[in-house]
Design a protein around this nucleic acid. Structure first.
Lengths: 346, 346
DNA sequence: CTGAAAGCGCTAACAC
DNA sequence: GTGTTAGCGCTTTCAG
């Protein structure tokens, strides 16, 4: 109701008949307060419903205990799960999270972001924007001048920056190898938008693994999607024309795999009997697809949590004056989850 | 790098040879500054890389331009889409978003939340926690003493509170009616956890609509799931025993529908030929299920955006001293999306 | 153990 | 047009 009449430390002091320092000592649990005084002050605090102002405190201490997290595409499964992990970990560490969700994946205005971080005096930045159009390097360059540490989540490892990422190239290799191990020899790929670093790395993994096994992929063997199921359906239609001999498909994510499989069913083709499938991400629905979808699993939640951990290390290093190079970046692995869609039936 | 040596308004003033008041006027675009002075000051600001401190400004102005958003289950599609809408709208309005993601759906500690809102001096609270165990009323009661407005997103309309919600009862009714209109007469229901207000309302819609049409649902005709695909599969297995005559199923969300359908396929049953299906939510995958899933669509993004709009109205009303009862709650509708899974095939 | 003074970085209100 | 004074709510010296 009454925003105007905020109860201040001064008011509490006056009512309790002590100085505001004493009140300050009570709310900060300082030892040097007589038990009786502490009790009395606490009573007044409760009665008046006093809450110390984080704003005033931040001004005095020059510490906000706040982290900015920059995201994009929260409507997608991956980014929102990462945020979930980020938020829980930040909470646990007693840091407040300032959320900045970009309207698109492309960063339009670095200047305004930089202004924002500086004005809000956040103590660190968690950059959880999927890397598109190789803008990651540009981002790092632009954000290098920030006075607070930045941790980059996702995409490729980056020289000289702090990151928490997952090995997409390795994931692409192992997904492809799995199909080869099952005996497939005509393996197509439906990639995500190649403007995404993730999509590009997975595709390169597919390409290199085929080459390594003496199978020679050509352009007719892959098609580009946009991560959504609809684009998977379109991509498989194109591949049926350009690569009629294919016996297996590695899709850049589960959604596209699911869309493609449904399309094949409509065309009277069976999975995995006619064409086998492996997806990527292990979304909840993939286990209940028809047929259940083999996929590469990555732990988004953990990625978020680790990102905060690394950021906190960097923040602490900065505030204690330690050399920041003790903080190490993190590279997580993916898990192969084998389900029916990739099993060789013969 | 140098957190210690923040450039302050005083430093800018000194370098530019003016008073800090003049600098303040420049950064706030006050008219009463000579053009030459303005230019000079601006030049110093750019050179020194000065950024005004939002913290100091908040303390002086007693305005933080910050909104707290409380969420739970960001790993799920619904809540994260709502957050996406919330974040974009808040950004647009120039408000910072402080994210508080609860570790579970059950609110354990109101006191700490209340303390948080008060200490951070947020100007409003967007409560985007799915309503479980009818705790919504308790929440409203607990948060009633907050000095800032609160808008409740989701679940049922609430007397005397500001909310932005969607009519789940109506959605449940229309989903069921659609199956009846298609000619089905033995309609089962797989509900979400009944501790969720949403799940309960949809189930009641199913129940009442059957009654209205002279069909009499009994306990053997429904099963409870937990929103996940796995629970949908389990639920349909139970229903096959308790309600062998069923010819259609209304599932409380798409995930459970997808899980149940896959289970039926494994059992050699066909959808919709043997058992028809309608889901709820219209998740992206539902259009690419086998068969494509009929569902009730709700616009999570819009819900988030509207929540911020209502909250901003309330905040403005409070700060301009207007009577807050000019702010009206919002009730959104759902859309029926008809796909193959519910089409009567004779 | 407790209090008084100074200051964090900024803006509002008034002088000049 | 521009500068001065006071104060937002808190913590950090330093006295006592």
């Amino acid at each position: 109701m009454d925003t105007k009449n905020r109860v201040t430390i001064q008011k509490v002091a006056a009512v309790a008949g002590v100085s505001k320092q004493t009140v300050s000592r009570v709310i900060n649990n300082h030892p040097d307060v007589a038990d009786i005084t502490r009790e009395q002050v606490q009573k007044v605090i409760d009665e008046l419903g006093y809450h110390p102002s984080a704003v005033a405190r931040s001004l005095t201490m020059q510490r906000t205990h706040t982290i900015a997290v920059v995201t994009a595409g929260l409507n997608l499964a991956g980014p929102s799960k990462v945020l979930h992990g980020l938020a829980l970990k930040a909470e646990e560490a007693g840091y407040a999270l300032l959320l900045k969700n970009l309207p698109g994946f492309q960063v339009e205005d670095y200047a305004s972001l930089i202004r924002y971080f500086n004005e809000m005096q956040v103590e660190g930045v968690a950059w959880a924007v999927p890397d598109t159009n190789y803008q990651r390097l540009e981002t790092i360059e632009k954000l290098a001048k920030l006075p607070m540490p930045v941790v980059y989540q996702g995409s490729a490892p980056i020289e000289g920056a702090l990151y928490v990422t997952v090995d997409n190239y390795d994931g692409g290799c192992r997904a492809t190898q799995h199909l080869i191990d099952q005996g497939y020899r005509h393996i197509a790929h439906i990639s995500g938008p190649l403007s995404f670093g993730d999509a590009e790395a997975r595709k390169t993994g597919w390409h290199d693994t085929l080459e390594k096994n003496g199978l020679h992929p050509v352009d007719a063997h892959w098609a580009e999607g946009d991560w959504n199921s609809a684009s998977g359906a379109e991509a498989i239609s194109r591949l049926l024309n350009t690569y009629p001999g294919m016996d297996a498909v590695f899709a850049g994510n589960d959604q596209m795999a699911i869309g493609a499989i449904e399309k094949l069913h409509e065309s009277g083709l069976r999975v995995p009997e006619d064409i086998a499938f492996i997806g990527y991400d292990n979304i909840a629905e993939s286990a209940y697809n028809s047929p259940p979808l083999t996929t590469m699993s990555q732990d988004f939640h953990l990625m978020g949590a680790r990102t905060i951990e690394v950021l906190l290390e960097a923040i602490n290093a900065q505030h204690t004056g330690k050399k920041p190079n003790t903080v190490k970046p993190v590279m997580l692995a993916t898990d192969l989850i084998v389900r029916r869609s990739s099993i060789r039936t013969q």
